[in-house]
Amino acid sequence: MNCPVDHGDGADTQVTVGAERVANGGVVTMEDRGTGMDRVALAEANALLGEDLESDRTDARHLGLFVVSRLCHRHGLRVSLRRSAYGGVCAVVLIPESLLPELPRHRAKTP
């Protein structure tokens, strides 16, 4: 799924969202074509996402990362950010199998 995102500066950024089932659960990816983040900012953001943050340790600049971190730890999700091939950022969310619905198995038709 693609959708334009208005950042308020008049520039639309294309965002691609994908989801698929994998061996141990599911993966959701969100990839934008914006200006991206440098390596240091990505490393800092990923470090914050990996922690079970407390609100008194988070300033307003990291409020979004705080919310995502808390939700991930509460529900057993893992999220990481990486550079997008398009110049922006790609967020990858791993969802454990236990949180996904049971899907019916497809049976091969016999002639």
Rank of each mutant, 00 (worst) to 15 (best):
R70A: 14
T13H: 10
Q14R: 11
L71P: 06
V15D: 04
G76Y: 05
V40A: 06
V27N: 06
N24S: 11
V93N: 05
A85Q: 08
G25V: 12
T13V: 15
L100N: 00
L99G: 03
T58A: 13
G50R: 08
N46T: 06
R21I: 12
V28C: 10
M1N: 08
A47K: 15
L103T: 15
G18N: 13
H62M: 09
G76A: 03
V92C: 11
H73Q: 14
P104T: 09
G76L: 01
V89G: 02
V22T: 15
D9F: 11
T110K: 06
H106R: 13
S80Q: 07
L48Q: 11
V68K: 04
R61E: 12
N46C: 04
G25D: 05
D32M: 07
R83L: 00
A60I: 10
R39N: 07
H73L: 04
F66K: 08
R105C: 07
V79H: 02
D59R: 03
G36N: 12
V68W: 03
A45Y: 01
T16Q: 05
T16K: 04
M30H: 00
C72F: 01
L100M: 12
D59E: 01
A108M: 14
H106S: 02
S98R: 11
H7L: 15
N24L: 10
G88D: 06
R107K: 09
E102D: 06
F66W: 15
G10S: 13
R21E: 08
Q14F: 00
S55I: 13
L94F: 02
F66R: 08
T13Y: 09
C90Q: 15
L53Q: 15
Y86S: 12
L77V: 06
E102N: 10
N2V: 14
E97N: 04
V40Q: 02
L103Q: 11
R107L: 12
V93R: 02
R82C: 05
L99N: 04
G88S: 08
T35C: 10
E51T: 13
V40P: 00
R61G: 07
D9Y: 09
D38M: 11
C90H: 05
C72T: 03
L42F: 14
V93S: 07
P96Q: 11
E51Q: 15
V93A: 14
N24P: 00
L48P: 02
G87Q: 13
G88V: 08
A45M: 04
G87M: 10
V5R: 03
L65K: 03
K109C: 13
D12L: 15
R105Q: 07
D56W: 05
E102V: 15
E51S: 14
N46A: 08
S69C: 05
G36R: 14
R33W: 07
L42V: 10
G10F: 12
S69Y: 08
V79W: 02
R61A: 13
P4K: 13
V27M: 13
E20Y: 02
G18F: 05
D12V: 00
G26E: 04
R82W: 00
R70C: 10
E97L: 06
R82F: 01
T29V: 12
L103W: 09
T29A: 09
G8E: 03
G25K: 10
S55M: 09
A43E: 12
N24V: 07
E51W: 11
V28D: 05
